[in-house]
Simulated assay, not measured.
Amino acid sequence: MAKFAEIGRAAIPGQGTELRLLQRNDEFSIRIVGQPGDLMNSRLHGSEDALAELACADVAARPGARVLVGGLGMGFTLAAALAALGSDAEVVVAELVPEVVDWNRGPLGQAAGRPLDDPRTRVHVGDVAALMRDSPGDFDAIMLDIDNGPEGMTRKDNDLVYSPRGLESAQRALRQDGVLAVWSAGRDAGFSERLKRVGFSVSEHQVRAHRPGKGARHVIWLGS
């Protein structure tokens, strides 16, 4: 079997560590330097697809729907959101690491079907928490796939996104009857309560990393 080859590196802002982009034939992996295993793998994106499908289900029919994807990653959530929404929609994707955007415009883009090339896509390079704070009433749905979920692994500042203050910013950034969807690698009972305390009605969905019905169990919270 062919071995992975490193084709890119990127510093994680404020953390003193790096992301590595690796390729083996048509398979891609993003890893954190010094940590074992994949942070993301292009063959395991069922739960990233589900994040967008669940978030967009109730807003796709709205004229001119505008949604936010927090975390570009390998582009699968962005691609699934575009597939779920109409031709007049706009999908803003916020990515903190500029090189991740470059990777998706380069060799990595083929994995998700090059969703950055879709004319409905808008890219924001920067902190999604700041974007939400500065965008009151702008979005019908917000999808957050930052780090490993509410328990940050790559960047402690990500904890702020999932704090009561960060969740209140997300709530203010939503339009009437908007939807917040949050991806996590695992369950966190305290996070459901945190969502409820800031005023969301919450449902929790268990999804698989790989479809159909295979791979690790991940969690998606929907707040409305």
Rank of each mutant, 00 (worst) to 15 (best):
S47Y: 01
F4E: 01
R114H: 14
H205Q: 01
I220G: 03
P107H: 13
A170R: 07
A173V: 06
G70E: 14
Q110Y: 02
S47D: 12
R172L: 06
F28Y: 14
T154M: 10
L160R: 09
Q171A: 15
L72N: 02
A11K: 13
D157H: 10
L85R: 01
G70N: 07
G16F: 02
D102M: 13
N25M: 15
A80P: 02
G137L: 11
D157N: 13
L116T: 04
S169G: 05
D157I: 05
R175G: 14
L174K: 05
D147G: 15
P136Q: 12
L68T: 05
S29A: 15
G215M: 03
G137H: 09
R194T: 11
C56F: 00
L78C: 00
E204V: 09
D177E: 10
I12R: 01
R208V: 04
D159F: 08
V97P: 02
V123N: 01
G215V: 02
R24G: 05
F139H: 12
D159E: 09
E204H: 00
R9F: 04
H205I: 01
L51A: 04
L51G: 03
P212Q: 05
F76Q: 04
A209G: 13
S87F: 08
H210D: 12
N41C: 10
V33F: 13
R20H: 14
G46H: 03
G34Q: 14
L72A: 02
G16E: 08
G71R: 10
L85D: 00
R62T: 05
R165W: 08
V91G: 00
D58S: 12
G16L: 02
M1T: 15
E204C: 03
H210A: 10
A130D: 13
V59Y: 06
L21Y: 04
P164D: 09
L54A: 00
T17C: 13
G152I: 13
V59A: 06
G152V: 11
A209R: 10
A111P: 01
R24K: 11
L116Q: 06
E18M: 05
K3D: 14
K3T: 11
D88H: 08
Q15A: 15
A185R: 04
K156I: 13
F139A: 12
D140L: 12
G126F: 03
D159Q: 08
W103N: 11
D138T: 15
N104Y: 03
A216R: 08
D145E: 11
A83L: 07
A111K: 03
G70H: 08
N148I: 08
V93D: 03
P107Q: 13
